[in-house]
Simulated assay, not measured.
Amino acid sequence: MKALRVKNVYFVESPLQLMSALEAVTFFKDETIIYYKLSSAQSKSDFQMIDIIKKSGLNCFSEMNNRSRSIWHISCLKLLIMFLLFAKSERVFIGDFRNFWFNILAGSIRSKEVVLLDDGASTIYLQYKFFSKGKGFRTFIRNKKAKGIKRNVNYIFSLMFNDKVPNLFSFFNFDGWLFDKQIDYCKVRKTLKKGERVRGVYFLGSKLSEAKILNFNQELKFILFTKNYMEALYPEHVYVYVPHRSDSEEKLIKIHEEGIRIKKIDVPIEIYFDSAECLPSIVCGFYTTALYTLNSGYCFESVISFDVSKNIACNKNIDSIRAVYSYYKSNGILVVPIKDF
């Protein structure tokens, strides 16, 4: 079976992780298999992943069955048995380090190293909070916020894993934050693209209310705050809202009712910018990873991140969110605090 004799094995479940995996395939140039997980319900993320797979022209993909929770667990168990008995590779790449099954499957393959692919804001948080301190998945599980029985279950599960720090294949700059002997397979940086610019501000949307990080009304107020801020700072530029793939139709209707222009993009923003003839002069957003990826690849008049962290202090993701804002500040992105509402 192909899965048992390739040099590199990948596990991904989002467009960003998949794009990172394809860059790693080009970088390492070894025989590869990419296991990808779609959501149980067809989503925009799924369509983007399928489109990326089709356009890649590669024949190295294997879908992990996720039609229901029980089928997902059964398919992972089958892979686990196969890997434990036969699998061996040079490297195993994980897209979502927080995915329990991805770590079990990666650990069941006899390999020389485990490599973490890009996974947006969580990559920054994991590197700062755990990897830079010599801690891996075992510590991560034990630090998950849980009470009572669930906390004890997490501790028992943690015993199944070692605490080895994974290497990285990331576009983020972690100079000074790597653990001893941790490798960062730095991608070749793209030459900054200048191209033609229009007088526009692209606000890159985030699924903050959909993910229950903010409530619906809060997020709308914050979006209006960014619009007013940018229009006061750049009166000759047109403010345009670029939705996240998970933005609800209800949110987009409300944004439109506020007189905000909306530009829907059906591919990952990085792919769109690569092929676009004209680009905006300014990009901004809350803490979306796209602010960093676009800032690394293109020349903009300004890149601004609006800080909402003071308004979500009780959220379970607050440590991760604060780590992202801190990282952005140290890497040349202007961070503007949003006033309390």
Rank of each mutant, 00 (worst) to 15 (best):
A21P: 14
S40D: 10
A21R: 06
V12K: 01
I33E: 04
M49E: 10
L16V: 14
Y35V: 11
L18I: 15
K29N: 15
I33N: 02
D30L: 12
T26E: 08
T26M: 07
E31R: 08
A41F: 03
P15R: 03
E13R: 04
E23L: 09
K37L: 03
S43P: 08
L18K: 09
V25K: 04
D46A: 03
D46K: 02
F27K: 11
Y10E: 10
F27Q: 10
E23N: 13
E23W: 02
D46N: 08
V25A: 08
A24F: 15
M19L: 14
S39E: 00
S39P: 03
M49Q: 11
S43R: 03
M49G: 12
V12L: 02
Q42T: 07
S45M: 01
Q42Y: 00
Q42S: 05
F27I: 12
S40L: 05
V25F: 03
L18Y: 06
V25W: 01
S39N: 06
E23Q: 13
V9H: 08
P15M: 05
T32F: 01
S20V: 12
A24Q: 15
L38G: 08
L18R: 09
F47W: 00
D46R: 01
S43V: 09
E23S: 13
T26N: 12
L38A: 06
V9F: 04
N8S: 11
L38E: 07
S20H: 06
Y10V: 13
M49Y: 06
Q42H: 01
S40C: 07
M49H: 07
A41Y: 02
F47V: 13
L38I: 09
K37M: 04
A41S: 10
D30I: 14
L38R: 04
S20N: 07
E31Q: 11
T26H: 08
N8M: 02
A21Q: 11
Q17N: 11
Y10L: 09
S40I: 09
L38K: 05
S43Q: 05
Y35S: 12
F47Y: 02
P15F: 04
I50D: 05
Q48G: 05
Y36A: 12
I33G: 03
Y10R: 05
L22W: 03
F11I: 12
Y36W: 07
D46H: 01
F28W: 12
F28H: 14
Q48N: 02
K37W: 00
K29L: 14
E13V: 04
F11P: 13
S45K: 00
E31L: 07
L16N: 07
Y10F: 14
S40V: 08
L18N: 12
E31N: 14
L38N: 07
Y35I: 10
E31H: 09
D30T: 15
S40Q: 07
T32Y: 01
S39Q: 01
Y36P: 13
T32M: 04
P15A: 06
M49K: 05
S39V: 02
S20F: 04
I34S: 01
S43E: 07
P15T: 11
A24E: 14
Y36C: 12
